[in-house]
Simulated scan of single mutants.
Amino acid sequence: MKHLDEGDVVMDGGNSFWRDSMRREERVWEDGIYYLDTGTSGGPPGARDGACFMVGGREEGFEIAEPILDELSVDGGLLHVGPPGSGHFVKLVHNGVEFGMLQSIAEGVELLEAGDFDVDLEDVFNNWSNGSVIRSWLVELMRDQIGEDNYEDVPNYIEDTGEVNWLVQEAFKGETPIPVISQSVTELFKSRGNQEHAYQAIAAMRHGFGTHPFGEDDDILKERVTGRVDNVSRSHLEKDKERKEAVRPKDRMDLDD
């Protein structure tokens, strides 16, 4: 604050909590300083070629910063959303939508890998990138990542900085149902192996009410795989044991037996 003068503009381009941005704007406005919560999307490519900005703050402050932001944004990628806090709020909703899209695409990969057909994932995602309803930058990124030589070495552990958690918490407070975004956050937690005791507890209870076995059981596995009259579509998948990936039924037994 001591380095700023009345009429100066501060732009926060990070993924800040919008209520923090509202508080900060109120504080600096006491000295006549504009504070713009500038939600920014596009990643490193956006920094090089033009980003997408969602800006909250006083209109006068936005007008001062607009020429700079217009130069840094892609066509159509600059929006003054509204009053202080609104820019970071819209950006966090954007991130929540992103989480849901990522999870949906990931589940599509899982289905393709587990299906009965030996499809080329890179070809499929390239096809989806051209004219399909779900074509998007994320689909294109998935196509490009599959084509990398080290794709199979990508770990199952997913890290994030937690901004979408704030969104889920606020949605719960306001009783706004967001099941897809909430579940996508939960899936990230699951990737970190945070549930060290939950499945142990479930196994214990199942044993208690139905004498279900602890751990793997070949007889139960056979019942699960052969207990249906109709065919079960599962392809045989090679598993890298060091990655500790889930064991599918056909990896553990010969269904012809």
Rank of each mutant, 00 (worst) to 15 (best):
G174D: 11
M22E: 04
L79A: 04
A51G: 10
V10D: 02
D251S: 08
D219R: 10
Q169D: 15
E110D: 05
I33V: 15
W29A: 15
D49R: 11
D160V: 10
V93H: 08
S104N: 05
P249V: 04
A65E: 06
R58V: 15
D144H: 07
K250R: 14
E25P: 11
E30R: 15
H3N: 13
G174V: 03
G87I: 00
F53Q: 00
P45I: 10
P84D: 02
G46I: 14
V55Q: 06
E242A: 14
L138Y: 03
E245Y: 03
P179W: 12
S136I: 03
Q183W: 07
V28R: 09
G96I: 00
D5Q: 13
G50W: 10
F62S: 00
L112C: 08
N127M: 07
N95C: 01
I134C: 07
E59W: 03
A204C: 13
P44K: 08
G32A: 09
Y35Q: 00
G115M: 00
F172P: 09
M142C: 04
R19T: 10
R192N: 14
G108Y: 00
L221Y: 09
C52V: 15
G193Q: 08
G193T: 02
G162F: 12
P179E: 03
Q169H: 15
D230H: 14
D75T: 13
D20L: 03
E216R: 13
E63A: 09
I146Q: 03
I158N: 07
G43N: 09
F117R: 11
L69W: 08
V93T: 00
G210M: 06
T38R: 06
R234A: 05
H197L: 13
G13H: 01
G147T: 14
G174R: 14
R192M: 09
I146K: 07
D217T: 00
E163F: 14
E30Q: 15
F189L: 14
P177M: 02
Q195R: 06
R58P: 14
M54R: 07
E66R: 13
H94A: 01
A65D: 02
A47N: 07
P249Q: 05
G162E: 06
D37T: 05
G43C: 05
V232K: 12
I64R: 14
I146W: 09
L36P: 15
V124Q: 03
E122W: 09
F17E: 02
P249E: 04
F209R: 11
L121A: 04
W29G: 10
G208N: 12
G13L: 07
R24G: 01
E26F: 02
L188C: 10
R192Q: 14
D120R: 13
P45L: 06
D240H: 09
T211F: 12
K244Q: 15
D37Q: 02
P177Q: 00
N127L: 10
S41Y: 05
D70C: 09
H3R: 10
D230V: 13
V81T: 04
Y199L: 15
D31E: 14
P83L: 03
L255R: 05
Y34R: 02
H80D: 04
R243P: 01
H80R: 15
F62C: 02
S235G: 11
A47D: 08
R143G: 09
Q169K: 15
A106R: 01
I146G: 02
S132R: 05
V55W: 11
E152A: 08
E59Y: 01
E159G: 02
G131P: 05
D5K: 15
G85N: 03
V168L: 01
N150T: 11
